[in-house]
Design a protein around this nucleic acid. Structure first.
Length: 596
RNA sequence: GGUUUCGUAGCUCAGCUGGAUAGAGCAACUGCCUUCUAAGCAGUAGGUCUUGCGUUCGAAUCGCAACGAGACCA
């Protein structure tokens, strides 16, 4: 009972009947608000077959549709545009079918595809920053959207817990830490470790400076600095399994994980499985052997192994070093294969910044060439960098917006604003705290998710994130309005219950019809968001819905309406809009409060 | 230098597979709280959609080129 399908089907029929031409596909679009109608057909493309003027052609098709589709109430023609008015009865019927129900189907279809969504992928040498925040929110939301769209989703995290950068923090802590721990310092574990990462860099730069002043080139100095030699030594010991090094590594990583756990909890993200690079970094080598054997991979004179992607417009890519050690892509090949064996995924989505576009292009193509047909299901969810007004963030130089600080700031601002507006005075302390968190974190999440993931975004820390206009608090506020009315109607003279039957015959206001059409679009939007991996579509949708509701709320009496049937209808409508808002915000990982 | 993404109001962004007079929010200015919660609503002002050429009945949208910004590779 999808109206668009009925319309396009009948239009194809109409063109065949009227003009004897067969057309494959026809799209109706939303009618421009300045004109009367719900859906519009642009008839210019059919003039060739109708051999008539646009107005005439549109009128003929319009007449045919009106005669053959009962839901078409009327139509009008403006130039080459055929505007169709769908009957109120159709929209009311639709509303009846969704009234009071959730818009998200929790039960998966039998044959639901398995989709792995990898996101977050932190390094254990420093705390999370603004860039990670975008990654986490995006990955989590895309996972929720895919789930709601009927996929079996496995959220996964690949923790980069080993390597030279981890050794930097470790060495610095040994040298200058004096046994400092999260407990002794009162610092969050990941921040403490990050402090030593920065500390290392400071001393390392000093050493380089000294060597350069002794006449070395910058490159020589970077390689020969004693600290560099020390961490390389440490990495070799780690790889050899030296017990003392491993113990130190485990202890410091343990601090970091505790810190991350808190950050993830505050962000509201979670994972079904977590991989650690320390377990996976040796994977992939056996696959290289097979690739060599069947000729997909080739060996160079220096013994390194590569794949020739020049026919595909890419380069020759080294997949194993001459000394037999892995490069990044070696283990990526290995983990992809391992995950396919483990989960038999249909799709694997890597949420990684667009700086790695080339890497993933190479990786996916390499896997395909190696003969893995499932590699078709690999996808790089590439998102733009978060930039500050004065350029990119650099952790080593300390020009980063820290995730924990940012979240706290948002919550503090939410608190200040709430108090300033004199809201929430009737809440108890615990509820107040929860509200500040809901509003503050909601603002942050919405701010990051409403922009197209592909685009880079600008974040200005000096101008804190707004709470007015196109923001989460605005949307949350409108949800709260629906709930406030329902509470009042329940306890008041209306004695209204959302489970009461919907009145049979009501006359809708134009705004009410518009709102029902918005609700009708929920599913199409969800589908599109899943197809494009774009939470931004959901964000824009829910803002539009909330805005439309806000206008409706202001210009229409709901509880004060005298006609009791209309009151009931409007409360049903408000309730269902509330559900849609809550569902959509849930897809973004944003909570809605009951009062604010 | 090569590859790639992008360029829409002062600022941050929508504008989906080409369609009617390019839309929101912020900032500015005007009104509206004794009324279902004003984190709101209504309104004013703000545009050569970077530029040029092309395809088309029709281009912010597609193609080519130039200019500008970012990322990756060397």
């Amino acid at each position: 009972m999808n109206i668009e399908n009925a319309l396009s089907g009948r239009t194809i029929e109409a063109i065949y009947t009227l003009y004897g031409a067969s057309i494959e596909k026809i799209n109706f679009e939303k009618t421009n608000p300045d004109f009367e109608g719900d859906l519009t057909l642009v008839v210019f493309p059919f003039l060739k077959v109708s051999k008539k003027k646009p107005e005439e052609t549109a009128a003929e098709i319009g007449n045919y549709l009106k005669a053959n589709i009962p839901e078409v109430a009327s139509f009008n023609v403006v130039k080459g545009f055929l505007n169709i008015v769908i009957s109120d009865a159709y929209w009311l019927d639709y509303f009846k079918s969704v009234d009071g129900k959730t818009f998200i189907n929790a039960t998966l279809p039998e044959n639901a595809p398995t989709v792995m969504v990898e996101y977050s992928s932190p390094n254990t040498n420093k705390p999370l920053h603004l860039g990670h925040v975008r990654n986490n929110l995006l990955g989590y939301s895309v996972a929720e959207i895919l789930k709601a769209a009927g996929n079996k989703v496995i959220k996964t995290n690949l923790v980069n817990d080993r390597g030279i950068h981890i050794c930097k923090s470790m060495l610095a802590w040994v040298k200058w830490g004096n046994g400092e721990t999260p407990e002794s310092s009162g610092m969050k574990g990941d921040h403490l470790v990050g402090k030593y990462y920065v500390e290392f860099d400071k001393h390392y730069k000093k050493e380089i400076g000294e060597l350069i002043s002794q006449g070395k080139t910058k490159e020589e100095a970077e390689k020969q600095a004693p600290l560099m030699l020390d961490i390389q030594q440490m990495l070799r010991k780690w790889e050899a399994g030296d017990p003392e090094t491993r113990k130190l590594w485990e202890m410091m990583n343990g601090w970091v994980y505790k810190g991350f756990e808190q950050t993830y909890k505050m962000l509201g993200v979670d994972f079904d499985t977590t991989y650690y690079e320390s377990n996976t970094y040796l994977l992939g080598k056996d696959i290289i052997d097979t690739g060599l054997a069947n000729g997909v991979l080739k060996r160079r004179a220096d013994n390194s192994v590569f794949i020739d992607l020049t026919p595909d417009g890419l380069d020759e890519k080294t997949v194993l070093r001459g000394d037999g050690t892995s490069v990044y892509i070696t283990q990526d090949i290995g983990t992809a294969v391992q995950r396919q064996e483990q989960f038999k995924f249909d799709k694997l989505i890597h949420t990684v910044g667009n700086e790695q576009d080339y890497h993933f292009k190479v990786l996916f193509l390499t896997l395909k060439k190696l003969g893995y047909t499932w590699a078709e299901g690999l996808y790089h969810l590439s998102y733009g960098m978060v930039e500050l007004p004065d350029g990119k963030m650099k952790s080593r130089e300390g020009t980063v917006v820290d995730a924990d600080d940012l979240m706290q700031e948002m919550i503090d601002t939410a608190k200040a604003t709430t108090l300033e507006l004199g809201k929430a005075n009737d809440l108890n302390e615990a509820d107040k705290l929860h509200l500040y968190e809901t509003v503050g974190m909601g603002s942050l999440k919405y701010f990051m998710l409403k922009v197209d993931p592909k685009k880079k975004m600008l974040f200005n820390p000096a101008e804190s994130i707004d709470f007015n206009g196109n923001t989460a608090p605005f949307i949350q506020f409108n949800y709260v309005r629906t709930q406030a009315m329902l509470r009042k109607a329940k306890s008041g003279a209306e004695n209204f219950n959302v489970h009461d039957a919907l009145p049979e015959n009501v006359t809708m206001l134009p705004k009410e019809k518009a709102l029902i059409i918005k609700l009708y679009n929920f599913n199409a939007t969800l589908k599109q968001a899943a197809l494009e991996f774009s939470p931004a579509l959901i964000a824009n949708y829910v803002y539009d819905l909330a805005k439309e509701f806000s206008q409706y709320y202001n210009e229409t009496d709901i509880l004060k309406e005298e006609n009791k049937e209309l009151v009931a209808f409007r409360l049903h409508l408000s309730n269902t809009i509330g559900i849609a808002i809550k569902d959509a915000m849930g897809l973004l990982g944003i909570e809605v409060p009951e009062r604010m």
